[in-house]
Deep mutational scan, measured.
Amino acid sequence: MPVRRGHVAPQNTFLDTIIRKFEGQSRKFIIANARVENCAVIYCNDGFCELCGYSRAEVMQRPCTCDFLHGPRTQRRAAAQIAQALLGAEERKVEIAFYRKDGSCFLCLVDVVPVKNEDGAVIMFILNFEVVMEKDMVGSPAHDTNHRGPPTSWLAPGRAKTFRLKLPALLALTARESSVRSGGAGGAGAPGAVVVDVDLTPAAPSSESLALDEVTAMDNHVAGLGPAEERRALVGPGSPPRSAPGQLPSPRAHSLNPDASGSSCSLARTRSRESCASVRRASSADDIEAMRAGVLPPPPRHASTGAMHPLRSGLLNSTSDSDLVRYRTISKIPQITLNFVDLKGDPFLASPTSDREIIAPKIKERTHNVTEKVTQVLSLGADVLPEYKLQAPRIHRWTILHYSPFKAVWDWLILLLVIYTAVFTPYSAAFLLKETEEGPPATECGYACQPLAVVDLIVDIMFIVDILINFRTTYVNANEEVVSHPGRIAVHYFKGWFLIDMVAAIPFDLLI
């Protein structure tokens, strides 16, 4: 008679799926529990143990900040960024110097990925580790590398530091407007667009060049630039800015003055950032001319202004700041037409079709709590990747769950009947059967004279019903998954307890 339990259901295979997918890609990662103190490590794979030199037993239950890997060259700011990422709910990448158990130093890129439950609360953290440099290539500990984003994938490793954006290309926007319009339909740009040429040739750093990471940081200074100062900065030398009595002219307006920039070969870094931020506020060169004239017309309804409409929906549905990093990277690809469009465009503009998908598509409701890094690593669709929660398995109709209350009560009843059979069957065979043979035949009273025979008949009927119930009862397979398919249940029961239950259900007393 089957006594099969499996009270692990309803099970959740999400954690096993993450481990299996990460292991298949030869990654070095740990999984931490966000619900406990210090976000203790609950799993670390073999790749991480080989990377740091510690065994799994030495890593388990330690804080996922990996303070046991810190050393003299470990930056405090990087460690603080990892700790801050564990307090938030967004994906974050941090470069930090770690030390192995043998004392060797290596520069590592740590990717902190939160995993949320159905309520939107962070319950786990996945920390992925990628070695960037070994100890002989690690720089000085005073050099802070965590304020910069990861290198873009479309640049060669040897040319990542030679990417320079020439400031004269930004200063000569109005001069290039006529050349853009003359391109017409034969050019790649839309009317009114501004073409910015980027020099990728390796050259020595000069005062006129600005690194790509500095251009990325310009967006942080746009908020500090007032509207009046932006307007004066875009007017140009024809209309000098008016300053109040006793007030000095704005240095932001002076930063885009061609006369002032041409007199000296070098520009201050602050002026460069502010000038680029001011130019980015204009949607095209037409807006710059309109600002000089004193009238700013409404933005025209053409394809170039609607190019950012799908980007707005993608940004609203993005799951991490990696989408913004990807957008900034692609927006700086050289030799393309940049349409400086305000994100607050007309909502009635139709979304044009684009061959290049900048932001990841909208994630469906079932995966809105899973970050983009987890979705990318697992390579699963929205119909396959579940949320991290207890999910009731989908069972067929008329199927009994093996952990249901009805099955528990039924098993206790069958257990009592088995005990009765084990006690009274030998007793009936030894004593009652002998008395029946010696006594007179009682054929007239039937079952009324033999109450134990009636009980034995009921017990046999219950055993037959138990066999039928076992054909529709779920079970737990070797992978700790609840199986509810009727065919698989029948095959599993035939290979197991079916023969024993059938022999126990045969009414031998009635056959004798």
Rank of each mutant, 00 (worst) to 15 (best):
L15N: 01
T65L: 05
D136T: 11
P361G: 09
H70N: 03
V59E: 01
G314L: 07
S179I: 12
K28L: 04
M308G: 11
R76M: 10
S320K: 09
S318L: 12
N369Y: 05
V3H: 15
A83D: 10
T367N: 07
P352M: 03
T162N: 15
F14T: 07
A79F: 03
I359W: 01
N38H: 15
R181Q: 07
R27C: 14
A211D: 15
R176W: 03
R271Y: 05
L296Q: 10
L225Y: 03
G294W: 04
S283I: 05
T270V: 13
G189R: 14
I288Q: 04
G88D: 13
A160Q: 14
A360G: 04
R273A: 14
R20H: 05
V377D: 03
V122P: 12
A57K: 12
T174G: 15
V132M: 07
L315T: 12
K166W: 07
P361A: 05
T145Y: 15
L165M: 06
D67E: 13
P157N: 07
R273T: 13
R148V: 14
K364T: 07
A204L: 15
S55N: 06
P347K: 10
R181M: 06
S379L: 07
T270P: 09
S283E: 15
G294E: 12
H70V: 07
P298F: 08
C44I: 01
T371L: 10
V325R: 12
K373T: 13
C44G: 01
P299D: 05
Q61A: 11
E214P: 06
G345E: 06
F14C: 13
D355G: 12
K373D: 06
T337H: 14
S178F: 06
V122K: 15
S266D: 09
Q61G: 14
T270F: 14
V198L: 06
P297F: 14
A293V: 08
P258S: 13
T319Q: 05
P297T: 09
A193C: 15
A290E: 15
A293Y: 04
K373L: 07
P72C: 02
G314V: 07
L15R: 01
A268Y: 12
A228S: 06
A89Y: 14
V115M: 10
D213G: 06
A223Q: 05
P227D: 15
N38S: 15
L200G: 15
A382M: 03
A293L: 09
